[in-house]
């Protein structure tokens, strides 16, 4: 079983602020971490490998320092890692990112399963996973909370939806995005950390993966960020008074007036 996991280095957003002047994230001095959802993807891949054998390859697109997250992946138990890094990749939106990653995946070659986290905690779009699947022409199942069964090219997945869950049977190769309910990630091992420290991380640039210039980075990104801002916190609140039934009536009226319901 060849499994590919796509991970991203993100600023630890619990500590991140937005620059009010430029409306961009202030990344300086903020610790970089593996996108938390991607750790679940990595854990699931490693568990599958331990259960049925195979190989776990991890890809990330990012600046040279993103190699750190690949080292962490090795420490957890990944077999091969590749860093997709090129100045020309910079400024990519989800479309250009998924294109770049799909070209990287094609270069890796053989795979049965691609696992991504459900979304990143900096961009929060949840688009890159499904877009990779679309580019590679394979099925995608999002918000997976459990791999129920996997055998002979058949896979049975449980996915969370708003009002419950769905069980989906489909075929590999397949891309899935996972949610945190899927597993409890392991701590890295000391042997893994020592191995990761020594390993040389292979870097692929645009020409290595055969990416077309107009489809990557800023030029491949139709998304235009007009403005990013922290929503203003309004402290105003209104306390409705009266008997519970009265309050409920008042509340419904207000919600209707505000076009909430």
């Amino acid at each position: 079983m060849n499994i590919i996991v796509c991970i991203k280095q993100v600023p630890d957003t619990t500590k991140v602020k937005i620059d009010p002047e430029t409306n961009t994230l202030v990344r300086e001095g903020v610790e970089s971490i593996i996108n938390p959802f991607d750790i679940y993807a990595l854990e699931e891949a490693i568990r599958l490998k331990e259960k049925i054998g195979g190989n776990v390859t991890v890809l990330t697109m990012g600046p040279p320092q993103a190699a750190e997250v690949l080292r962490e992946a090795i420490a957890m138990g990944a077999d091969d890692v590749y860093l997709l890094s090129d100045k020309a990749f910079a400024g990519a939106d989800t479309l250009a990112t998924s294109y770049t990653l799909s070209k990287g995946i094609e270069k890796v070659g053989q795979f049965d399963l691609i696992i991504c986290g459900k979304q990143t905690m900096d961009g929060d779009t949840a688009q890159v996973g499904p877009e990779i699947a679309q580019k590679l022409g394979i099925p995608v199942v999002t918000y997976v909370s459990k791999i129920e069964d996997i055998e002979n090219g058949q896979i049975k997945l449980k996915r969370m939806v708003e009002d419950g869950y769905e069980v989906i049977e489909t075929e590999t190769p397949l891309l899935m995005t996972v949610i945190k309910e899927i597993n409890e990630p392991r701590v890295p091992s000391l042997r893994g950390i020592m191995k990761a420290k020594k390993i040389e991380i292979p870097i692929w640039d645009a020409s290595d993966i055969g990416a077309e210039g107009e489809k990557i980075g800023l030029s491949g990104s139709p998304t235009q960020v007009v403005r990013i801002f922290a929503p203003e916190v309004s402290k105003e609140g209104e306390i409705l008074e009266g008997e519970p039934t009265e309050i409920a009536e008042k509340l419904i009226l207000k919600l209707k007036k505000g076009k909430v319901i």
Binding site: R186, V187, P188, S189, L190, R191
Partner: peptide
């Protein structure tokens, strides 16, 4: 179990006996 997974239970044991 976490300490075991992290190889820390074999920290002081020589490699030939499974430690680090």
């Amino acid at each position: 179990k976490d300490l075991a997974q992290a190889d820390l239970l074999g920290l002081y044991i020589p490699e030939e006996y499974g430690g680090v």
